[in-house]
Amino acid sequence: MKYWWWKIAAIVIFCYVLLAGMLTPLKPGIQSIDNTKGILGEELVVGVTGYNSYFGSALQNRAFLKLSDDKVIETHQITERGDYKADLRFNLPDHLSTGKDVERATLIINNEVDGSLILPNAILLKKEDNTKPSDKQWGQFNVNELFKADRFRFPYRNQLNETIRNTFFHVAIWFAMFILLITALVYSIRYLITKDLLLDTKAAAFTSVAIVYGLIGLATGAVWAKFTWGAFWTADVKLNMAAISVLIYMAYWLLRSSIADVDARGRVSAAYNIFAFVIMIPLIFIIPRLTDSLHPGNGGNPALGGEDLDNTLRMIFYPSIIALSLLGVWMSNLTYRYQILVDNEIEE
């Protein structure tokens, strides 16, 4: 029990990640709208398609077009067609009162079952030359009047949809890979200090599992990219930097296999491991921040956090990192024990 409790923990936590990560539904969201242009002073009709929504079952549907907190108009009529479809009708005012002729408005739908469904920058409001005068005015927005639905659900993001769950696997495996690489680095440094060959073997085992994790990260990333960005492989910086770091560690393995003498192999590969890790830091953490990237946290995109990683996601994301790291340690441990057997064989 003393030696394998963490292996059980890895399995249990990973099962929790799979179950909670796959069974928790997404928050309701607005999947698409059939009209994105509204002319001021006229009636705007928008057909909305919701995702995971309950328009039909809810009794008190309300919808708003919002420019800012004190410039909001409410629908005068909502026609629900089932749980997922609804037609909204707005009587638009004849001015934007910001001095501009064109502005994007946010669409908000609220009912007692779903809470609020928000689609930012949904509708382009435009002033035409022959705008008819209308007595309709922009109103105040009262957040307290809205219904709230605080259930445990993952955030709904357009374009991402259900693939937001990939955070628990794709992002977590990169974190786990990094933890394994740091462990290998520590073993390499300790090897250079103590010259204990077992430490070098350990560093090699951790690196080999980290390479497998890196390949998994690249493959899963390719699938995720296909369904959100449209291509398996893009020119995205972070993707290519990650691919390069996998190459660097594959070269580490090639280097190890090309040196026969055990002591020289240990010293050289430990030195290369430390050197490569130090160079990888600007590669992964600094350069992606300088250039535009599709990944969150780079080139002006919001970092991990905000709406990409809210508290509900965190409750599964962090355990996932722990589970995958423990699995990686377990696999490295097996590789290490195998290598020790092989080395003993050679000595005999």
Partner: peptide, 8 residues
Amino acid sequence: LAMPLCLP
């Protein structure tokens, strides 16, 4: 060994 490391 050197090419990927020269990249940054």
